[in-house]
């Protein structure tokens, strides 16, 4: 009836009428659904039997049980699990921390060891090069003194030779003069002036020496 009334009052515009018709269809479908649902419920589904006081009672008990469960879980049971998980997390974190600390200590020890080795190596190297340097310096100075000594000795020897030679030369002049005088006096039987012979010998020696 309501549908017809609506239809009649909106009869002026054809377009709207078509729209109304659609609404009517939808509405009648909806009414069908609504009226069908309780019939269906009456036929079977105990879940849709809202007249049953047990259906309502069930919801009241549900509310009580659900709230109780929520309170027990949130205040009592879940915090327990949370504390266990937290304990595990902290203990694992602690273990990890300890392990990390041990590792860093080991790393430091290894680094120290390496550093010590390196230092020892370096100092040994330094000592070796120092020893080499000193021994080289010692050898150098020794050779210098030795050289000096040798030079001196050589110089002395040369001087000695020179002196001996000079002496020998002086002796030779005298011997030559005397020999010349003797030879001349024997050959000629006349004595000659010594100074003439001296001059001749000196000239001969000088010619030879050059």
């Amino acid at each position: 009836m309501g549908i017809r009334l609506g239809h009649a009052s909106a009869g002026r515009w054809a377009g709207r009428q078509i729209l109304r018709r659609r609404w009517q269809l939808a509405a009648s479908a909806a009414v069908l659904l609504i009226t069908a649902a309780p019939a269906w419920a009456a036929e079977g589904m105990p879940q849709l039997d809202f007249a049953n006081k047990l259906t309502t009672a069930q919801v009241v008990w549900l509310a009580i049980i659900f709230v109780a469960l929520y309170l027990l879980l949130s205040r009592w049971a879940l915090p327990q699990v949370a504390s266990v998980l937290e304990m595990r997390a902290t203990s694992i974190a602690g273990d990890l921390d300890a392990a990390r600390r041990a590792k860093s200590e080991a790393d430091a020890a290894v680094a120290e060891q390496a550093k010590a080795t390196r230092e020892a190596h370096a100092s040994a190297q330094a000592e070796i090069s120092a020893a080499v340097a000193t021994s080289k310096a010692a050898a150098d100075s020794e050779s210098v003194t030795l050289n000096a000594k040798l030079d001196q000795q050589i110089a002395e020897a040369e001087e000695r030779i020179a002196r001996a030679r000079a002496a020998a030369m002086g002796a030779l002049e005298q011997v030559a003069t005397e020999t010349a005088l003797e030879v001349v006096s024997r050959l000629t039987g006349t004595a000659i002036d010594g100074s003439t012979v001296n001059r001749a010998v000196a000239a001969a020696l000088a010619a030879r020496a050059s």
Partner: peptide, 24 residues
């Protein structure tokens, strides 16, 4: 939609306009 339409119809006595509208 049905429930709102039905309730509005009951309240405004516009049956079945609101019901149809709210079904759509």
């Amino acid at each position: 939609g049905l429930a709102i339409g039905w309730a509005l119809d009951r309240w405004l006595h516009t049956s079945p306009i609101m019901l149809a509208l709210f079904v759509v």
